[in-house]
Design a protein around this nucleic acid. Structure first.
Length: 598
RNA sequence: GGCUCCGUAGCUUAACUGGAUAGAGCAUCUGACUACGGAUCAGAAGGUUCGGGGUUCGAAUCCCUGCGGAGUCACCA
């Protein structure tokens, strides 16, 4: 792109003028800020040392050099140490004409097939329904994967279901005790909710029992250990590990209920996976890896039989990998999963979208894998995202402040319905069409609200505010898109056909706003690249917003179809169409649908 | 307490990774509809970028320090 060309030319200029070697990639080029005239800006401060001249003068000299060597440059100006460069109109018109012809403007043309990037996200437990925290995780994972794909690399989306462990045994016990015979179908409940209720019930009953034991004089810890319910749950876990048929059957039955429920939620969110891993399948492989490490004396066994990794070389403690009773821990399972995933895909990168409370865990995972001689450990990257907080603090199941994913989506849908109905713009829609639209708007609002925030940061989810559709929101963007589509329908009625720009345009000037939109459009692929590199859908989300804001300003006070000069009219139509295209494919990468009307 | 991360308008947040006068949205106030869709636009007001030092042409960004918050330091996952 022109960006590249410019960087190379600047490096040449510096070499020719000041005999200093600069790599093109080190040349600082940025978008010219709105307040100044120009399209791209070269920062010249870094050359002051070699040039031994004031920045203003350097800017002039480099500017002249560039103008002579790059024909697309129309003129330039220098303000302080900033060299602002303007491209000529022809360049921009040609750019617009070309990208209107492209089918997938901005997206990578070829996908590099080998060594895909494997992205793990969602990773639910099977004892609880999905909640707001999962929603952020899922949206991030999906979007990061899509963005990476758009930047030119093959991607595999995978899920890791934590389907075994004491927590599942608790729900199994609770169901046997208090719900035997009842099924989600009979109870008319979503499977994951149904099972989750038994988990809650277990905890409740167990708490009562522990309290009772404490009244009998036991300490809290002791009381917890002596709880009959806990004993029974542990008994089930043991049976499960021994492969007891009856236990396994019940486990499978209840998990199946949960998956059915999850599937519904995933489907509504627009999410699918290429492969789903289950910890019940991977923990044994993890154990094997540990045994192997032990035999190679990379790990050590204590007297009680437990196995540890000594990480003191890395400044960390020792880490348990296998308990004395031979059972595995979280880390063991993750070792197995990593290996399995590596064997499955031979990936170039292994990404894990997991909350930042597990930063330490992933540091250790990498180190242990490395210790076991697994080179792919270097390709593991933890996309660590911040917690979702509520206006009154964290989500706590004990305090009933967990925001359920399904409920949340329902709420968003209902708000979309209320607001849309009030505006009365879709009265001619069938009921089915209307419902589909409410879903698009509601989900768009929810997804955008979450994705626009930098993943690394903790974010505040204010339920009241999130369903407002004004300002920096998904529906604002969707609205702009719908408007552009409306404009194009009108154009069609008036007999204008695509492609709008077939020959060289004869218009002689662009409005500042038009130019601004062009610059934004041109940045699209670069934004995708940067967002992919930073694993940050937020960068893309904010870019789309800027483009849309700029377009709305243009639309408000610039005639398109009412324009009398047909050349101008066609140009503006093309500009609008292109803006719509970028909105659509950008939003698509965020997992957000845009409506033709709203 | 050790380690890690964070602190930007009343609130929610941006800032191209060290660049120009810190940019938006919400809320507040003012203005714009016989409309190519007002779920819009234009404008006003709102900032010692937590405090204090330092590094340099230049700091919200890097270093030191103090304060405040979060996470983690499990034979839970």
């Amino acid at each position: 792109m022109l960006n590249q060309k410019l960087a190379v030319a600047v490096a040449e200029a510096v070499k020719a003028l000041y005999q200093q070697d600069v790599k093109p990639e080190d040349v600082q080029i940025q978008r010219t800020r709105k307040e100044f005239e120009g399209d791209l800006t070269v920062v010249v401060f870094p050359f002051t040392k070699a040039a031994k001249k004031p920045p203003q003068e350097i800017g002039e000299e480099i500017g002249n050099y560039l103008k002579e060597n790059i024909q697309e440059i129309e003129n330039f100006n220098v303000i302080k140490g900033f060299l602002n460069i303007c491209f000529e109109l022809d360049y921009w018109m040609e750019f617009l004409r070309q990208c209107l012809l492209e089918k997938n403007y901005g997206l990578a043309e070829k996908i590099q097939k080998d060594n895909p990037v494997v992205v793990e996200f969602s990773s639910p437990n099977t004892n609880k329904p999905l909640h707001l925290g999962h929603v952020r995780n899922i949206l991030l994972g999906w979007s990061v994967a899509e963005i990476i794909k758009a930047s030119g690399r093959a991607v595999k989306k995978v899920n890791l279901v934590n389907d075994r462990g004491i927590h599942i045994c608790k729900t199994m016990l609770a169901w046997e005790k208090w719900g035997k015979g009842v099924t989600p179908a009979k109870a008319e409940k979503k499977g994951d909710k149904f099972v989750g209720d038994y988990y809650v019930q277990f905890e409740k009953q167990n708490k009562l029992e522990v309290k009772q034991k404490m009244l009998e004089g036991y300490s809290e810890e002791e009381a917890a250990n002596r709880s009959g319910l806990m004993k029974e749950a542990r008994e089930i876990l043991k049976k499960w590990e021994q492969g007891d048929e009856e236990t396994r059957a019940l486990w499978e039955k209840m998990n199946a209920w949960v998956y059915k429920g999850f599937d519904k939620t995933y489907k509504r969110m627009g999410i699918a996976f290429d492969k789903i891993y289950y910890e019940s399948d991977t923990y044994l492989l993890g154990k094997e890896l540990v045994e192997e490490g032990l035999s190679k004396e990379l790990l050590k066994r204590r007297e009680d039989g437990s196995i540890w990794a000594d990480l003191s070389d890395e400044g960390l403690d020792e880490k348990l990998l296998i308990r004395a009773d031979g059972t595995s821990v979280y880390m063991t399972q993750d070792l197995g999963t990593a290996q399995l995933r590596y064997d499955d895909f031979k990936p170039g990168k292994l990404l894990y979208v997991v909350g930042n409370e597990q930063n330490y865990h992933f540091d250790v995972l990498k180190i242990v894998l490395k210790k076991l001689g697994k080179d792919y450990a270097d390709d593991i990257y933890h996309i660590s995202y911040g917690m979702v907080e509520l206006p009154h603090g964290k989500m706590k199941s004990r305090e009933g402040t967990v925001v359920d994913a399904d409920d949340l989506m329902d709420e968003m849908h209902d708000s979309a319905k209320a607001i849309t109905s009030e505006l009365g713009k879709i009265d001619e829609f069938t009921e089915e069409e209307a419902e589909a639209l409410f879903e698009k708007i509601g989900m768009g609002a929810l997804k955008y609200f979450i994705l626009k925030v930098d993943p690394k940061k903790n974010m505040l989810f204010n339920p009241d505010e999130s369903i407002q559709f004004d300002g920096h929101t998904g529906p604002f963007i969707q609205y702009t898109y719908a408007r552009i589509q409306s404009l194009q329908r009108k154009a069609r009625e008036k007999g204008f056909k695509k492609p709008y720009l077939t020959k060289k345009s004869s218009i002689t000037e662009m409005l500042p706003r038009e130019r601004q939109i062009m610059k934004n459009l041109q940045d699209f692929s670069e934004v995708i690249r940067l967002a992919a590199e930073a694993y940050s859908p937020a960068q893309l989300a904010n870019y789309i917003y800027e483009l849309v804001k700029e377009y709305n300003g243009f639309y408000q006070d610039t005639p398109v179809l009412r324009e009398e000069d047909e050349e101008k009219l066609l140009f503006r139509l093309g500009l609008s169409e292109m803006t719509g295209k970028v909105i659509k494919s950008g939003m698509d990468l965020l997992g957000i649908a845009v409506p033709e009307r709203m």
